[in-house]
Design a protein around this nucleic acid. Structure first.
Lengths: 200, 200
DNA sequence: TATAATATTGAATGGGTGTTCAATTTATGA
DNA sequence: TCATAAATTGAACACCCATTCAATATTATA
């Protein structure tokens, strides 16, 4: 059972780290603060994560894992029914459910670390390639797209999605936000349509 | 001349801050380190920037200003000739000259602050809106696009550009990088073409 | 129950942090 | 030249940081 306690503690610490980072920022969240937040001495935190770097590395793994969770229901549907509607998938990508699972501030703080840490960069890249493969799987099951370069299409769709997330984060006004979401969603629909039309 | 010394010092400090952040990261660059780097006591740094927050705020203004510089030659051309080729503009957006003027690591570190600081968020938004207006100006001068929704088009072009920057930062292999750049550049060209074709 | 492994504590370390302040040097303007 | 203002210095502050370590408590194993 020792291992279970250990794993539980680790999860607890990472989650505490994440929650405090959400409020105060990654750079202002110290090991001492995490300890206080969880009611344990900082030395216990360091017992499970020997250095701060390791702690951050684990936080990033957690975050990227959370990102994958957003696609989970869609992928389940894909497996059971052997089909998933690309448009529904795109809708989900643009939905705000996202924010419930993953805080943008923490996410981009961690992202900015890729420029000075190769391992983090690789982890981010692998995740993003995985996301594109998922979408490709969905597109491949769509009969309107058979024989099309779905790899290219999923690359083009995701670049719009990621650019949209980046840009939309700057807007607080819900009305403006929604208006812009619509624009980018349509942009993705246009991409899908373009490929579908060529099929006829 | 007092004012000139003051302004010179301020620029010097911001630049030192930027350079150290490039190497060590924004979060690891302290006022003491900046002072040491520039051969001055930390108290002098704080004489010109009373708090660290103000210092960061000024660094961000500098960074966004640098970002505008990339567009300067293009905008000059627009003024003198009253025309600029949209495709050339897009090429410039995807060129690597960018990195000489602005480090991506520092840029995204600062970007991640928008989620906890409204003023920074507003400054980023204004900058991005400005960029889109510049592109709109260029598109408006193109006769192939007269009467078209150039505001929408520039919005759609930039979302691809920004998504591309975000995604491409994860790739070190120059070959893969170039291959992906080509994809996204073509994606933008397709957008332009789509609008141009509708015109005929 | 005895032993070994794991979990947890609390105190201590040295070093870095942003910031303050009074004193001093240098430049400016009358 | 003299007074005033600006620039610069260096020491000091309390605080927070990641990390270490030895001691203790709990749990697992035999």
């Amino acid at each position: 059972m020792g291992i279970k306690i250990s794993e539980g503690r680790k999860k607890e610490i990472i989650l505490g780290f994440y929650q405090l980072s959400k409020v105060n920022g990654l750079e202002n969240t110290s090991i001492a603060k995490i300890g206080k937040h969880l009611g344990m001495p900082p030395s216990l935190v360091m017992h499970y994560f020997p250095t701060r770097e390791i702690l951050i590395s684990n936080l990033i793994s957690y975050i990227l894992q959370q990102m994958l969770l957003i696609y989970q229901p869609m992928l389940k549907e894909l497996e059971t029914q052997n089909y998933a509607d690309p448009h529904t998938f795109v809708d989900r990508l643009f939905s705000r459910d996202w924010n419930l699972l993953l805080d943008d501030g923490v996410f981009y703080s961690c992202y900015s670390l890729i420029f000075r840490n190769k391992r983090i960069k690789d982890e981010y890249r692998v995740l993003h390639e995985k996301l594109r493969e998922y979408l490709k799987d969905i597109l491949d099951r769509d009969e309107n797209l058979t024989g099309k370069d779905t790899e290219l299409l999923s690359e083009q769709i995701f670049v719009v999605v990621e650019g949209a997330y980046y840009y939309l984060s700057m807007f607080d006004d819900p009305e403006v936000y929604e208006q812009k979401v619509t624009i980018f969603k349509n942009q993705v629909y246009d991409l899908l349509r373009k490929y579908e039309v060529q099929h006829l």
